[in-house]
Simulated assay, not measured.
Amino acid sequence: MVRDLFMFAGFNENSQIAWFKIIYLKEPGSLSLITDFLEKENAFIMFGHLDNITQKAGEYSVFTELNEDVDPGNLAQKIKNLEVVSEVEYGISKYGMIYSVDFPLNVIGVRGVAARALTIVDIIKTLNENVAHAEGLLTISGLKGGIHAAKYFKSIMPLNDSNFANVLAELYRAVGWGILEIDCNPETYEGKIVVKDSFIADVYGASEQPVCAFMSGYFAGYLTEYFGKNISVREVSCKATGKQVCEHIISLAPSGSSQEYQTRGDPR
């Protein structure tokens, strides 16, 4: 199976990025019929990839740029009405975090790499097993990443109280880090973030202590940069300890603390 490799960037307030997963009959001209139809519907194909499901059926996953007034749901129904199509799923990348790239990869404004989750978790485990106050170091490392992310988003789009949480949630889903549910009051700077399918907790294995300090730091950095206030985030529940999800509590950092203030935790 060969896939084109594409990553995340860009924002155009006059358009939207919609993806369609199309199951079609592998007959001569089937794929051309689908792509010609998308062209007639003014759906600009950014990229796509093909998977062979069976000898008779294929999957065409395609990312398109649509005018902001186009309803992707209606377009998906039109695609499904084509004779060669049996099923269609669709979704929207609301903030355009998808971009075609050559080497090197570009992820939200800087060079990125694709790595196995196990590789990153092995680094985290090594720190936890060999370094005193490793949790604090991981938190501060995440803090810097979150700050960089928020700065980039503010440079390419109007980041505000109505979208700052959704942008962060879409980023996490796009890079495969987890699915976020964010409840944060922009007036009190308090709230919580629930992470479903955290890549750290899922791969780490059983632990007596929460293991997603890096994510806590990332959230804190992102929110600190967005709010312009020193925000503290700590994980109070972790899937690695047997919980269903990971939960991080958001609060305003103590008065007078530095931007990199975070609870470092006890030595492991």
Rank of each mutant, 00 (worst) to 15 (best):
D4Q: 11
A9P: 05
G10L: 05
W19D: 02
K26T: 08
E27T: 15
T35F: 01
E41P: 09
I45K: 05
F47C: 10
I53H: 05
T54S: 15
K56G: 14
G58K: 00
E59G: 02
Y60N: 02
E68Y: 06
I79S: 03
E83D: 15
S86W: 02
S93I: 11
M97K: 10
Y99C: 11
V101M: 10
F103N: 11
I108H: 00
V113T: 11
A114F: 10
T119G: 03
L127D: 05
S141I: 07
G142V: 06
G145W: 00
Y152W: 07
S162N: 15
N166V: 00
N166C: 01
N166K: 14
V167Y: 00
V167T: 01
R173M: 14
V175S: 11
I179C: 02
L180A: 05
G191I: 07
G191T: 04
S198H: 05
A201Y: 03
A206I: 12
V211A: 11
F219H: 03
F219A: 05
L223E: 00
T224R: 01
R234M: 11
E235I: 13
S237A: 05
A240G: 13
G242Q: 07
E247S: 12
E247T: 15
P254V: 09
P254G: 09
S255K: 15
G256V: 06
S257G: 03
Q262M: 12
T263H: 10
D266P: 09
R268K: 12
